[in-house]
Computed example of a mutant assay.
Amino acid sequence: MAHPHGVRRRVHVGDLQPGDHACLLFESDEERASILRDFVLAGLDAEDKILYLSGAEDPPGPGALWDECRLTSVPGGPAGRVEIVRLAEFLTGCGQLEPAALMRRLRNAAERSREEGYRALRVAGDLCAALHDGHGATGALGVARLLRYEALLAEEFSSGGALAVCQYDIRHCEPAALDAFASAHARSVEADPLVRTAGLVVVRTYRPQGLRIEGVVEAAVHRQLRDALRSVAAVRGDVRLEMSRVEFLDLGGLRLLMTFARARAARHATVELGGLPPHLRQVITLVGWDRTPGLRLGDAHAC
């Protein structure tokens, strides 16, 4: 599936490796917090140090970032593992980013993390604060300076001593700027899978709200699929289950989807089965499950 803003390859955020330079285009605080949480957890597991670029005038401390990621129970907490840096420190008096100054700061942080014994430095942050002029509009000069920073970052991090996820809020960036930023990254990131077995992957999606289901659904994974469906049960409004990569779905799995649809109907919402392979659409129609309350069959999967 092509990314809506042209990023060439999508990767689970927990699968990033030193040397990777990826972007996250998000449009909800929930989406950003979820993926940031996965990014931080992967860093803890890999013995990385984490640097967060804060766009706030008064950035939160490491403990507040831990709270935002819902990692308050992680042993050791943020002590020594997280550094918060104000993006405003690298803006001119006119609010324009100074790419070289920011890169020097990140280079020094990466060198220091290696001296402290960490595997690599992980960098994340919402960069939209570096884009806008005094009237809140996205200025061409701001875009050009930020693209310069992205180019420097990709070159610097290619050595493998660090990795970065550059975050851009779709709500606060113009489409042309988003396309430019997406093109500056070889990868985009998404949340780590809710389910990842030898045959099945289920990933939380946010645009639209729902799940992407890939692979084989059989009795051995019914519990995992049920848990994944429960994770989006509280979503307000309609939910979409993207199913174009489903290779096999047994009757037990279909019943789980019908039960989920009825529960959505009770909340005055629907669940759309998108990208259904023709054989699954045919089965659902033949047994009459296409008339299930709360269920909507979306676009068919193109063969």
Rank of each mutant, 00 (worst) to 15 (best):
V271M: 01
M243S: 09
L241Y: 05
V283G: 00
K49S: 11
L211E: 02
V7G: 09
H3K: 06
V165F: 07
K49Y: 12
G298A: 12
R105S: 06
A184R: 03
M103D: 11
V11W: 06
A33E: 07
R81H: 10
P4M: 01
R245I: 01
P75Q: 09
R267C: 06
H172M: 12
V11Y: 00
T259F: 06
H5G: 00
L44F: 15
M1E: 14
E116S: 08
E272R: 13
D169K: 04
F90P: 06
G160C: 13
C173Q: 08
A154S: 11
G77R: 15
D48M: 01
C23G: 11
L297H: 06
H222V: 09
P59N: 02
G93T: 13
R226Q: 15
V232P: 07
A186V: 09
D45H: 03
A124Y: 08
R230F: 10
V271I: 04
R86H: 06
T292K: 03
E115H: 14
I84W: 04
E174L: 13
G136M: 13
T72A: 14
P99W: 07
H5I: 04
V217P: 00
L44M: 10
I284W: 07
A64P: 00
A265I: 05
L257F: 04
A110R: 13
A151V: 08
E27P: 02
G275Y: 07
L254P: 00
V217W: 04
A302R: 11
E89T: 09
F157P: 00
H132T: 14
V195R: 00
R281F: 03
L121H: 08
G93L: 10
P18M: 09
H132E: 13
L254E: 09
E89I: 02
R148Q: 08
A124D: 03
T197Q: 05
S34K: 11
R105W: 01
I284A: 06
